[in-house]
């Protein structure tokens, strides 16, 4: 499952169409393995959007991607950049999204500002959500699964004021293959994490037969996982005479 956060409806529209997402609530779209949230403009709204979605996080690891437009002094309009550094211009705080895969496009430092940038002094991208999105998403997922993809939309020559909603959608649409490539990479990472934490076979069957406390159920999960690794999967059948969860756990320990 990937969660995509866009600031603007115009950024979201081509992604919704491309992935065949359906409306699932206010500013929320859902489809096969993807959820898209339209956060509104600014870091505070981006943060709030992530925090609203976070309680729905289950055990399954998810990827989080902030997709949107950004300004750069002279980069080609429509070119994509994956953030390797995010700086909150207001506080000076910085984050460094790791790339444990071959990035689908060049990287860049992304600076989150509160107003439209006009000076473009450095080589950074300027935008308005990443520094709100990123730390909030880090609370929901391992850092490797949280990425920020920006499309250059304006600069010293092409001023932001001249951007139309249709123009924004066009820029995003032109980079859907990059987004798809990024999604594939992150989905693979999420799948690897999911495989590590998957509930071992037989776990629920044991819970149906005996009462396990929270601590005991954790011990049960560990023991079943270890036994599976050793090629000795266990089910409740072998414990017919066990009077308690403690007796089951002792029996499982004895099998290692």
């Amino acid at each position: 499952m990937t969660r995509i956060v866009c600031a603007l409806p115009a950024e979201a529209r081509p992604i919704v169409a491309h992935l065949g997402l359906e409306p699932a609530g206010p500013r929320l779209y859902r489809g096969d393995g993807v959820e898209l949230i339209v956060s509104g403009v600014g870091p505070a709204r981006a943060r709030a959007a992530v925090e609203r979605a976070a309680p729905a996080e289950g055990r399954e690891p998810r990827a989080w991607i902030n997709v949107g437009i950004a300004g750069h002094r002279d980069a080609e309009i429509g070119s994509p950049r994956l953030a390797y550094k995010i700086v909150d211009a207001a506080s000076g705080r910085a984050w460094y999204p790791p790339a444990t895969f071959a990035p689908p496009c060049p990287g860049a430092e992304v600076r989150t500002v509160l107003d439209v940038e006009r000076a473009f002094a450095g080589d950074e991208l300027f935008e308005m959500e990443a520094a709100g999105f990123y730390p909030a998403a880090l609370r929901c997922a391992s850092a490797e699964l949280v990425q920020v993809l920006k499309i250059v939309s304006d600069g010293r020559v092409e001023r932001a004021e001249r951007l139309s909603a249709a123009g924004v959608s066009e820029l995003i649409e032109g980079n859907l293959p990059v987004l798809e490539a990024l999604r594939r990479e992150l989905d693979a990472l999420a799948a690897e994490l999911a495989a590590r934490t998957a509930v071992p076979d037989g776990f629920d069957d044991f819970l149906k037969c005996w009462h396990f406390t929270v601590t005991q159920s954790r011990q049960l999960e560990r023991l079943l996982r270890r036994l599976a690794t050793l090629g000795r999967p266990a089910g409740p059948r072998g414990f017919d005479g066990a009077k308690s969860a403690a007796a089951v756990l002792a029996g499982l320990r004895g099998r290692i």
């Binding site: 790791p98 444990t100 895969f101 071959a102 609370r139 997922a141 391992s142 490797e144 690897e192 994490l193």
Partner: peptide, 15 residues
Amino acid sequence: NRRGQDFRLQKRRPA
């Protein structure tokens, strides 16, 4: 070594 990093995933492509 920040919290919320995964050693195994990073081992795929260390920086």
